[in-house]
Computed example of a mutant assay.
Amino acid sequence: MLLAQDGSDYPFLDLMWTMIVFFAWVIWFWLLITILGDLFRRADISGWGKAGWTLLVVFLPFLGVLLYLVVHGKQMGERRRAEAQEAQQHFDDYVRSVATPQPRATEQIAKAKELLDRGAIDDTEYEALKRKALAT
């Protein structure tokens, strides 16, 4: 017969140690995923190099991760910074392209009238441009 255990059988220091071990595992897996993600995004390492680092990280995890951080740690940060700057630049370009103000209807009609006066368009084209400008 199983006896129910109450919370008093698990001392506070054991609880703290369990929490430390849990968070250490979370950090470990986060570090492992970060390193593997960096490794497979790199274009300067061949497939054999990636396979070798992967085998080292999987079969000798602590040694592999520490070696990768020592050998490529600084470059990891530089690559992440470059990727973030590139993503920010793409976002800024997109926002600028979307936020560019459209010419007002009066400006469009004035340009159409100028084209009409120069003879570049006829009356029907002018009226079509005017309707289009007023519709927006």
Results as ranks from 00 to 15, higher is better:
103 P>T: 07
131 R>D: 05
29 F>H: 01
53 W>E: 08
132 K>T: 06
118 R>F: 09
47 G>S: 08
84 A>L: 15
124 T>V: 14
54 T>Y: 04
26 V>S: 01
100 T>E: 11
89 Q>C: 13
62 F>H: 11
96 R>E: 15
127 E>V: 09
114 E>L: 09
85 Q>C: 06
21 V>Q: 05
4 A>Y: 10
86 E>V: 06
36 L>D: 00
14 D>K: 08
98 V>A: 12
47 G>K: 13
65 V>M: 15
46 S>Y: 04
28 W>P: 00
121 I>E: 11
123 D>A: 13
118 R>G: 06
67 L>K: 03
44 D>Y: 02
20 I>A: 03
112 A>K: 04
43 A>W: 03
30 W>V: 08
26 V>G: 03
42 R>W: 02
84 A>S: 13
48 W>G: 10
41 R>W: 00
8 S>C: 09
67 L>G: 03
63 L>R: 15
8 S>I: 11
130 K>D: 01
82 A>V: 10
73 G>F: 12
8 S>P: 04
4 A>R: 03
66 L>N: 11
80 R>L: 14
40 F>P: 00
64 G>E: 08
128 A>H: 10
46 S>P: 05
91 F>L: 14
99 A>E: 14
134 L>G: 05
134 L>R: 05
59 F>Q: 07
118 R>Y: 08
37 G>I: 01
125 E>S: 10
50 K>F: 08
81 R>S: 10
98 V>M: 10
21 V>L: 04
65 V>Q: 15
16 M>T: 08
110 A>S: 09
5 Q>C: 08
45 I>S: 00
124 T>N: 15
84 A>E: 09
9 D>T: 14
14 D>L: 02
7 G>T: 01
74 K>Q: 11
76 M>D: 06
3 L>Y: 00
43 A>L: 04
99 A>W: 04
4 A>N: 04
103 P>Q: 14
45 I>K: 05
50 K>L: 03
91 F>R: 15
11 P>G: 10
45 I>C: 04
132 K>Y: 03
85 Q>P: 07
75 Q>T: 15
3 L>K: 06
19 M>I: 01
94 Y>D: 07
17 W>P: 00
3 L>T: 05
25 W>Q: 01
34 T>L: 08
68 Y>A: 02
65 V>R: 13
86 E>F: 12
49 G>N: 05
75 Q>F: 08
1 M>A: 09
57 V>W: 05
18 T>P: 00
129 L>V: 05
78 E>C: 05
30 W>R: 05
47 G>N: 12
1 M>Q: 06
57 V>T: 12
18 T>D: 15
11 P>Y: 05
97 S>F: 07
17 W>N: 04
73 G>V: 09
126 Y>D: 00
82 A>W: 06
100 T>W: 04
24 A>M: 06
109 I>E: 03
131 R>G: 01
80 R>D: 06
109 I>Q: 00
61 P>Q: 12
66 L>W: 13
24 A>N: 02
12 F>W: 05
133 A>R: 04
111 K>N: 08
5 Q>N: 09
25 W>G: 07
70 V>F: 14
51 A>S: 12
75 Q>W: 13
76 M>S: 12
114 E>Q: 14
31 L>S: 03
26 V>W: 01
105 A>H: 00
8 S>T: 11
45 I>V: 12
93 D>C: 07
132 K>L: 14
133 A>F: 02
69 L>M: 15
72 H>F: 09
124 T>M: 10
